[in-house]
């Protein structure tokens, strides 16, 4: 099957409906695999729990960045209007915080939003050019109508027979090895 220069880096199980995929994901989690993932054409509600995914660190990053935005806004507005350009407007105090609340709010949101975008890119490990999954053509099927579980060979529990047996046990009828072609591949799954 595989070319001499290629090596198997994982096993893909393809499913036809999300309910079977969720049950299979729960089974794989119970079997103790750690390096594996699910791929679906659309978000499947409850899959994160079936997979046993931990809470995302994105909210904490967003909140922290938001408070930095708030700090930046206070320094920006206060520094400009009370220190660098102290101009009295409408008889109000130089540091008139109510006027700046919209700016506090906006910069809080802006910093949080940018941090969410950046941290999602980092946490999802985006920015790689290709992966064996894409090269295999399986992704084309997944983005159409199918659902996949990918078990990585890097998982210490992985052996091709056991993994295949596990996927078959979950009712998978389409199991394919995932092959990495050495000469062009510099990426992981």
């Amino acid at each position: 099957m595989a070319e001499p220069s290629a090596k198997t880096v994982g096993l893909v199980g393809l499913y036809d409906d999300p309910a079977t995929l969720q049950r299979a994901a729960a089974r794989v989690r119970e079997a103790g695999y750690t390096k594996w993932d699910c791929h679906t054409p659309y978000p499947v509600h409850g899959l994160d729990r079936a997979m046993g995914l931990k809470a995302s660190p994105v909210p904490a990053v967003a909140l922290t960045a938001g408070f930095f935005g708030l700090l930046a806004a206070i320094v920006l507005t206060g520094g400009l209007s009370a220190i660098h350009y102290p101009i009295r407007i409408g008889g109000k105090p130089l540091f008139s915080w109510p006027a700046f609340v919209p700016i506090y709010f906006e910069l809080f949101v802006l910093f949080a939003a940018l941090a969410i975008m950046g941290s999602i890119i980092v946490f999802c490990r985006l920015g790689r050019w290709h992966s064996p999954l894409h090269d295999s053509g399986i992704m084309k099927e997944i983005t159409g109508a199918r659902f996949a579980i990918v078990l990585e060979a890097a998982d210490e529990r992985f052996s091709e027979q056991d993994a295949r047996a596990l996927l078959e046990e979950t009712g998978c009828h389409d199991i394919r090895p995932l092959v990495q072609h050495e000469e062009k591949d510099d990426a992981i799954i």
Binding site: Q22, R23, R29, R49
Partner: peptide, 8 residues
């Protein structure tokens, strides 16, 4: 506990 989505 993590429960798979309950059958309706």
């Amino acid at each position: 506990m993590i429960e798979p989505p309950a059958a309706i």
